[in-house]
Amino acid sequence: MFDHVLFGVSDYAASKAFFLKALEPIGIAVVSEGPLGIELSADGKSSLCICQTEEKPAHLHLAFTAENRQQVEAFYRAALEAGAKDNGAPGLRPNYSGKYYAAFVIGPDGHNIEVVCHEPEV
């Protein structure tokens, strides 16, 4: 549905380091970086773009797709190591669906970052 999502951050260097470390387990990496910010993607079809802003960013909920539950768990560990706050350890969320396996963290600007796998356990 989306080609890209762009949002501002209060500390570009800290946010760049956080997102690169936290999202590496699901294959997200730098596509490009320039004076306007950084573009991250896993598939080259859709991207997350981050730029420095002087305004206080509104809190977002960003949910990324994982291929398997191990990626959800790896994201959670990497995000906490990168300085995120726990907002929901990896696990099934049966109130969403029987296969909704996700983890949630709060990132540097207070954004709720989620990685979810919709596949059954293998």
Rank of each mutant, 00 (worst) to 15 (best):
L6S: 13
L6F: 14
L6W: 14
F7E: 11
G8D: 09
S10N: 08
S10F: 08
D11C: 03
D11G: 07
S15L: 06
K16E: 12
K16T: 07
K16G: 04
F18C: 08
L20N: 09
E24I: 03
P25L: 08
I26R: 00
G27V: 02
S32D: 15
E33P: 07
G37C: 09
I38P: 09
I38N: 11
I38V: 15
E39W: 12
S41R: 01
A42I: 01
D43L: 12
D43P: 09
D43S: 12
G44W: 10
K45I: 12
S46T: 14
I50Y: 11
I50N: 11
C51N: 13
Q52M: 13
Q52K: 15
T53F: 11
E54H: 13
E54L: 13
E55A: 14
K56D: 13
P57R: 03
H59T: 15
L60N: 14
L60G: 10
L60Q: 14
H61W: 06
L62M: 13
L62W: 08
A63C: 15
F64S: 01
A66D: 07
E67D: 15
E67T: 07
N68G: 06
N68K: 08
N68I: 04
R69D: 04
Q70M: 07
Q70R: 12
Q70L: 08
Q71C: 00
Q71R: 00
V72T: 06
V72M: 04
V72E: 01
V72D: 02
V72C: 05
E73K: 12
A74F: 00
R77P: 11
R77L: 13
E81H: 05
A84P: 09
K85T: 09
N87G: 11
N87A: 11
N87S: 10
A89I: 06
A89F: 02
A89S: 12
P90F: 00
P90R: 00
P90Q: 00
G91F: 01
L92I: 03
L92M: 07
R93W: 01
S97T: 04
G98P: 15
G98V: 09
K99G: 10
Y100R: 00
Y100C: 00
Y101G: 04
Y101I: 01
A102G: 09
A102Q: 03
V105Q: 02
V105I: 07
I106Q: 13
I106T: 15
I106W: 12
I106V: 15
G107F: 03
G107L: 01
D109E: 05
D109Q: 04
D109C: 05
H111I: 01
H111S: 04
H111L: 03
I113R: 06
V115D: 02
V116D: 00
V116Y: 01
C117D: 01
C117L: 02
H118S: 04
H118N: 10
H118Q: 04
E119S: 11
V122Y: 10
